[in-house]
C-alpha cells in the first residue's frame, strides 16, 4: 500500500503551517509556499484569493528547476541566492534539501536581507518534515536499467 507515494500527516502539516506563518509575520513577506520536488503544492499561507496557489506552485517549481539546471550548466552546484525582481513584488526561492522548495513572495520595499535570514531559518525547520514525507527512497542505481538493458529493450 502507498507504494512509492509520499505521505503527509495532519500533525506535520500543522507544524509546517506554523513555520511558514511565523516566517510571514517575521519577514513581513506577502505569500509563502512549500512545493515538493514533483511540483505538487504542499501548503501555502493565506493570500489574496485571486492568486491560485496550485498554479503558482507549478510555475515556481518549474522556474526553480530551470534555475537549478542553469546553475549546473555554468558550473555551480546550486545558486545560493535566487531572486526575481518585479515592479511590485520580488520572489525568493530556496531548496529544502532535495525534497522541495520554499517560495517567498515579498514587496520590493521589504529588505531582502530580512527575507533571506528568516527564509533560511524556516528551511532548516521545515527540512525534517519534508524528509519524513519521503517514505520510500528513490530506486537505487542497481535497480534502474543499465545502458545495455535499454539497448536490449529497443532492438532497432
Amino acid at each position: 500500500m502507498f507504494k512509492g507515494s509520499k505521505v503527509l500527516q495532519p500533525e506535520d502539516l500543522n507544524q509546517m503551517n506554523n513555520i511558514i506563518e511565523k516566517l510571514k509575520t517575521q519577514s513581513k513577506c506577502l505569500v509563502v509556499l512549500i512545493v515538493d520536488d514533483s511540483g505538487h503544492l504542499i501548503t501555502n499561507t493565506e493570500s489574496d484569493p485571486s492568486i491560485d496557489p496550485i498554479l503558482l506552485g507549478t510555475l515556481t517549481a518549474g522556474n526553480f528547476g530551470a534555475t537549478n539546471e542553469l546553475a549546473k550548466l555554468i558550473g555551480e552546484a546550486e545558486f545560493t541566492l535566487v531572486l526575481h525582481e518585479g515592479n511590485k513584488e520580488n520572489i525568493h526561492m530556496l531548496a529544502i534539501g532535495d525534497c522541495g522548495i520554499l517560495v517567498v513572495i515579498f514587496a520590493n520595499t521589504t529588505p531582502i536581507g530580512l527575507i533571506r535570514m528568516y527564509s533560511q531559518k524556516s528551511v532548516t525547520a521545515l527540512l525534517p518534515y519534508l524528509e519524513k514525507m519521503q517514505v520510500e527512497k528513490k530506486a537505487s542505481k542497481k535497480d534502474l536499467p543499465s545502458d545495455e538493458d535499454l539497448e536490449n529493450l529497443f532492438n532497432w
Binding site: A71, H84, E85
Partner: peptide, 10 residues
C-alpha cells in the same frame, strides 16, 4: 513581468 532574474552562485 519580473524584469530581472538574478542568480548568485559561489
Amino acid at each position: 513581468e519580473f524584469s530581472l532574474l538574478f542568480h548568485q552562485g559561489t
